[in-house]
């Protein structure tokens, strides 16, 4: 699947998008896998309350299933308007 990062999450991890092959069942499982990779991921995901997630471009929460998902995006709370 494609994993996307926006705003300071993108800056902290150092890339906007990457392909990830995973057997993770939920967003939280995927986060745990990413955090185990490298410090920059661990740092970016250290406070989940400061993050939001979208699965296939729909806002959801960290318990959500990612089975069959094509795209998961992580970003800080939105500041539109």
């Amino acid at each position: 699947m494609d994993v996307l990062y926006f705003a300071w999450v993108r800056e902290r991890i150092g890339l906007p998008k990457e392909k990830v092959t995973t057997d993770a069942e939920t967003v939280a499982d995927l986060v745990a896998e990413l955090r185990a990779r490298e410090d920059r991921y661990d740092l970016a995901f250290s406070d989940l309350s400061a993050l939001r997630v979208a699965v296939d471009q729909e806002l959801t929460d960290f318990d959500a299933s990612i089975k069959g998902a094509r795209e998961v995006a992580f970003f800080p709370p939105m500041t539109g308007g």
Partner: peptide
Amino acid sequence: LMDYLKSRAPFWKKEHAATGETSWVAA
């Protein structure tokens, strides 16, 4: 519309100060 646009539409603001510093606007 404005209340939902602010918190539920995927936009993120970053300020570029005249000093050259940048900072993401916190929700």
